[in-house]
Design a protein around this nucleic acid. Structure first.
Lengths: 347, 347
DNA sequence: GGTTAGCACCCGCGCGCTGCGAGTGCCAAA
DNA sequence: TTTGGCACTCGCAGCGCGCGGGTGCTAACC
């Protein structure tokens, strides 16, 4: 973010006003903006000719470009960046918008999966872009308790609960039959040892922590140690939700079928987008615009994300769309939604 | 399905050959098929003129239509229906296709959710259509065991296992604190009473079955009875997966943006499609073509589904796409995939 | 010097015209 | 009943053209 002096150095006040107007206008109409419109629209008391010369300098600074000779101007990624950093006014959601989000998120909210799904959906709907959510990072959670339940002869259910209230179940297949009593003993002793550690700590030091167990079934303990990677390491476990494809498909930038298909690929594959999202741990709303996204084919989109908290566990949610989007509004939506999610889980 | 005589009554052999060729051709090219192509292609020893007269009768029977005067012919829904019922030869997948499906389904198959997701994805990929899967109908399952685990002061985790190996967890919030011992007692006695019943039976007769319990915590039992609808009734629980949007977006019928958007809506909303799928309990592959689908906007698509089994519990999987699709091949794909899913779960 | 009116010029877009070609229906002859 | 011939239909791609929005340049103006 630039401060006032630095901004002044780059463009003077009139330049900023014009850049802002161009961006606002282009976001609505998706058409190049020309000097006549700017002269008519803004009470700047400036003639089209003067505006043209300002547009010219804005273009030479790389904030605008002309799609072809003697067309109007279109913002560049750099232009949007300047807008976001220096020009954008903070936007508040109206009470009815907030209400709509609150309502939708709570519809049929039975478990965290439901909530995240609904949240993503409403993010998409309200923003008319694509809502994206990454499920909380389980590994940050604090171990609360584990339980081992017999399913059948050789299959055992491991139920892992995390302090924030998350519950995770894994089915184990073990090549030996173990009595129910042994199971209970084992889980009891494991619970004692692992209490209050984070999942990450457990994963890193499980063998040392449980090596010298007196009670419990040694084969089972060994099996759990061997499979620790599976139980306590959830690299792929960050589930990606997305919602609002309906909206984004109708955005004019996706007239081009190739682009649309690329987007679909990106979504369905999920891997790249998941990785990108999981690397975005920052305070506040984190915005990357177009070519600032270097991964995959993301360079045609803007991404607006923030961190939400479910107890002590963190996840990422946000909005993805064409670079042409209402950044101020989108910021507010993302921010409010993340906050709401934290509140709901607090209840 | 018509028998040989009935088929003969409707169209003679030459007519059937021509209808089949038109359909095969149209499926590849997505362009109206004309008499010159048919004369060239098939060694029928028949001139274009004769073919035209046959095409004429096929059209008057409603199997074909002309998109405009003096264009070639395009199959109607009724035409596809006749093709599927009477003309289509059973198609076998090649070993490499089977291998591909097997491989994909098992990638990262950790729990049933993963498997179904992967399955749906591969259904979409192999068919180049949209793969759709409805998760198993939990209510048909046979109760095996339940476990009550304390999460915190007033929150209890209910773990419900079903004979086929499915596991379901629900977090309960109860307005009283209950000792761990009481919990165990309660779950033990409930397990005795509910053993070997189907979830559906339990849902219908839970109060009668547990009314006169001597042991266990009465408040907890009452709470479980009161919430039986929540625990044992999973109307919305049939989760809908879909995969392969990438493919279907590139199908030429979705050039039309409105259609594409309608499709996206159908998918994302999920409700209608979910209902439609859940009503399709039939043996074998069940095919409905275009206007035969009366629900929602489904009348532009064909749906090909079958039932898969996970233990005793059934689910539905299939393929959805434009009416123009390779029905024989798609049948084989759907059939093989369902079978595979049963086998995997058997292991 | 910054601002502005005037002007020549640029270029995408929509429109109408046209010719081509694929395909048809009809008819008369085989 | 089949077939070759023929006139006709109609979508489509290509082309040319004029419109209009927008520009840059220049010369005059404050």
């Amino acid at each position: 973010m630039l401060n006032a002096n630095e901004i002044e150095e780059v463009i003077d006040k009139r330049g900023r006003q014009i850049l802002e107007t161009v961006i606002d206008r282009y976001i609505c109409t998706v058409e190049p903006v020309g000097s006549p419109y700017l002269a008519r629209h803004r009470r700047l008391g400036i003639s089209p000719a003067s505006i043209r010369s300002i547009l010219n300098t804005l273009e030479s600074l790389g904030f605008l470009y002309q799609p072809y000779t003697s067309a109007g101007r279109v913002p560049t990624d750099k232009g949007y960046r300047f807008y976001v950093d220096a020009l954008m006014k903070k936007c508040q959601l109206t009470e009815s918008e907030k209400e709509r989000i609150r309502h939708q998120v709570k519809v049929r909210a039975r478990d965290i999966d439901d909530i995240l799904m609904q949240t993503t959906h409403v993010l998409g709907m309200v923003s008319k872009q694509l809502g994206v959510t990454l499920s909380p990072r389980f590994q940050q959670g604090i171990f609360q308790r584990m339980e081992l339940l017999p399913l059948s002869e050789k299959r055992i259910l491991l139920v892992l609960t995390i302090k924030s209230g998350l519950v995770k179940t894994v089915v184990m297949e073990i090549d030996a039959s173990i009595s129910e009593e042994k199971l209970q003993q084992t889980s009891r002793v494991l619970n004692e040892r692992l209490c209050d550690l984070s999942i990450q700590e457990i994963r890193e030091s499980l063998p040392q922590r449980v090596r010298d167990l007196a009670r419990g079934d040694p084969r089972l303990v060994q099996f759990i140690i061997d499979s620790a990677a599976l139980f306590f390491d959830f690299p792929q476990d960050e589930h990606l939700y997305f919602g609002g494809t309906t909206n984004i498909v109708s955005q004019p930038e996706f007239r081009d079928r190739v682009k649309l298909q690329a987007l679909m690929n990106l979504l369905e594959e999920g891997k790249i987008l998941g990785e990108v999202l999981s690397e975005r741990g920052r305070e506040g709303v984190f915005i990357t615009i177009g070519s600032e996204n270097i991964r995959g084919d993301m360079c045609h989109y803007s991404l607006l994300t923030t961190t939400y908290r479910v107890g002590k566990v963190e996840g990422t949610l946000g909005i993805m769309g064409p670079t042409r989007m209402r950044y101020a509004k989108m910021c507010a939506v993302v921010d409010y939604t993340a906050q709401l999610l934290g509140d709901i889980w607090g209840e």
